[in-house]
Simulated scan of single mutants.
Amino acid sequence: MSFKTILAVVTDQAHMSDTLAQAVTMADALDAHLSVVCIGVDRTQTGYYYAGMNAAVLQETMNHAREQAAELATAAKKQMEMSGLRWGVSEAVCQLADMSRYVAAHARFADLAILPRPYGDDRGIELEAATEGALFEGQSPVIVLPEGGAELKMPQKIAVGWNESAEALRAVRSALPFLIAAQSVHIVVIDPPKHGPNRSDPGGQLSQYLARHGVKVEIDVLSKTMPRVSDVMRRHVSDMNADLVVMGAYGHSRFREAILGGATRNMLETSEVPVFMAH
């Protein structure tokens, strides 16, 4: 398997330049085609008709979204013309409620999606919908970019968050091209279960599986010395100077993750390096 079609989704000018610059660097390293989807988001709530709002106002919100999509596409084409890649730029208008489905329709035929961080004070809710659409409905692995992170390139040192879940295994298999090419891969196991078939050799089976693919792999078993698993993982990623984290996405329901927090959400909010996820 190789990554030959990369999808980048842009919904606002604030994050477009950095997202495309990172996507261009990765597409160049992988010799891949880069597809850029520019979406003007109509934030009118579906099914609601506000008091005093008439058809003209509704049409105005749609026109604004069309203008936004056109502006994004024009700027994206200008940036892509300098890249020297095989690329394509498309534009569309999408209601917020339909965002996930629209992104998924493109992600289904991409090998990898590159998206900005979905959480944060300056992040619109459409970024979360785009990430979930690519991951869940589009069934595409996703690289989520950190805020102001280093240049995204072929990773040389990778940290794999391993908890024996189906989501983590799917992420590892999806990331194999990166894992094989890396100089070192660390399987990070935090507080392994005291009971179970792998209690005496946490991460051993995964290590064996990856070694047969030629991956240069090590196992790091850590104690949960901080309140959250994501905090331990993030500190270890910093200590080992990793340039990519591979992990499964949303082991619990997305509703529970959103309300109570979870390893996925916390990593995306705080990670200083790109996070590769699959579900």
Rank of each mutant, 00 (worst) to 15 (best):
K77V: 01
G84Q: 02
E71K: 15
A92S: 13
A70Y: 09
A76Q: 04
A75T: 12
A70V: 00
M62I: 04
M62Y: 02
A56S: 14
M80Y: 00
L72R: 03
G84F: 05
S83H: 03
E81A: 08
A69R: 05
K77S: 09
A92D: 13
A56T: 14
A65Q: 00
E91H: 09
E67C: 04
R86F: 09
A55R: 12
T74L: 11
M82L: 14
A75Y: 06
A73N: 03
Q68K: 12
H64S: 09
Q59G: 14
V57W: 10
Q79R: 12
M62F: 09
E67H: 11
R86P: 02
N63M: 12
V89A: 03
Q68T: 14
G84V: 00
A70P: 02
M80R: 01
A73K: 10
S83R: 01
Q68M: 14
K78Y: 10
Q68P: 02
S83N: 04
V89E: 00
A69E: 06
W87F: 15
L58K: 10
R66K: 15
E91Q: 13
K77W: 03
T74S: 13
A55C: 02
G88C: 00
E81L: 04
S83A: 06
L58T: 09
R86C: 05
K78M: 10
R66E: 14
S90A: 15
A75D: 10
H64T: 06
H64P: 01
Q79D: 08
W87S: 05
N63E: 15
A70S: 08
M62C: 01
R66N: 06
A73V: 08
M62H: 12
M82C: 03
Q79N: 10
Q68F: 00
A65D: 04
T61A: 10
S83P: 04
L58A: 07
L72M: 05
A65P: 04
T61Q: 08
Q68E: 15
E60T: 12
E81H: 05
M82A: 15
E60F: 13
T74M: 09
L85V: 10
S83G: 01
H64A: 08
R86V: 06
